[in-house]
Design a protein around this nucleic acid. Structure first.
Lengths: 208, 208
DNA sequence: TGTCAACTGTCAGCGGCTGACATTAGCCTC
DNA sequence: GAGGCTAATGTCAGCCGCTGACAGTTGACA
């Protein structure tokens, strides 16, 4: 059982996160000050910074939930599965179960809107990409362990994860600049792009 | 012929850039204030911001020179060359001719030290990665044009460039966290990793 | 119930960055 | 070569993100 103090603290954090996301997705990230967020929740600015390391962290907190779950999904894939197939399955699984992670904090649609705010705000995109690299680092270790390799001696786990991450980033960008912002569209793009990356590297583009 | 005013302006910018790099590589990025840089050149802080959009831009200005040249090198590759081979050749060519671009501003060794500052400073790494994405966008258009494709309709140019970029990022990271900070080491890593990416994706890692 | 610790508020201050306005100094024409 | 024009710089005030220090409040737990 949780203590009252912990519940109160969590409630404040949730309120700050929800207010931040609400403001970011309506007014825009740059147009929202930390004071705005704190004021909306009726706490001091200092309290905001006690819950979030910075404005960026509040903007990326939702993504972090999804990414953490994705990494766990990769860990849970059967050991017999090939590395890239494990990544592929974990990603698709992630899209399917997005509701379970997000809906308890904000509506999925809000999450998807926030996603696009990140993609279209330079400073947020930059922070997002750096986090991606950290995730890739973690994933490389997971894959290396699955295959019994030393991640510092054998570059192949890092290379595979980097390639996979590159494809996912192209996918995300295509989704966020496209017209269909549904989860289903994201899922179909993921499948399609992962299928095409092999041919794109080996075959000539002129002989489709 | 250049006007005196333009020469003076360029000289101020160069002095600011050199002072910034000098301070960043000795004292560290976070430990250096814009006032420090301006003071070292004996100009006002406001003048610094008239030459650089921000502190980050001064830190990434050297890289920008190299990246711009790399993109030009890709454009200049023979049209008959396969896309990925064009990228590969352009990168290797870039390392070989690094002197020509950099030495007129700072010693190559200083550039390599600055490179590692970027890799090890979170906020700089983030900004660097975002720039990489912009570069990848440009390169995808270049490759699409070479192959006569529409970059918005066919994802293959973007996918190929993203994969290539992913490999290069793994390479850079391995170089900057390794022990041999020479250009030759960078070059060898590049060749080695680009060779291994194919097998890493297709073959089983256990049957080396 | 009283002590301790955690959460919060207030205040002061730093650093990045910008707009507005004044000043200097190269450029260009008559 | 004296004038006006304009680009480059300096100065000043102020916003915003963020942090440390200190004080007040409110749960936790004996």
């Amino acid at each position: 059982m949780e203590t009252l103090r912990e519940r109160k603290k969590q409630r404040t954090r949730d309120a700050l996160l929800r207010a931040a996301v609400e403001l970011f997705t309506t007014r825009g990230y740059e147009q929202t000050t930390v004071d705005d967020i704190a004021e909306a929740v009726e706490v001091s600015q200092r309290t905001f910074f006690r819950h979030f390391a910075g404005k960026e962290e509040a903007a990326l907190a939702l993504q972090e939930l999804v990414v953490a779950r994705f990494v766990e999904a990769v860990r849970a894939r059967p050991a017999a599965e090939a590395p890239l197939e494990a990544l592929r399955q974990a990603v698709l699984q992630g899209w399917e179960t997005l509701n379970e992670v997000i809906e308890s904090v904000v509506p999925v649609e809000t999450y998807l809107r926030m996603y696009r705010v990140v993609e279209s705000t330079p400073v947020l995109l930059a922070a997002h990409l750096r986090r991606d690299m950290e995730t890739e680092d973690t994933l490389a270790r997971v894959l290396a362990e699955r295959e019994g390799l030393d991640v510092d001696a054998d570059p192949r786990p890092r290379l595979a994860v980097a390639v996979f991450g590159g494809v996912m980033r192209v996918t995300e960008r295509a989704w966020s600049t496209g017209e269909d912002f549904s989860l289903e569209a994201m899922r179909e793009l993921t499948i399609s792009y992962l299928e095409q990356v092999g041919p794109a590297l080996t075959e000539s583009w002129r002989t489709r």
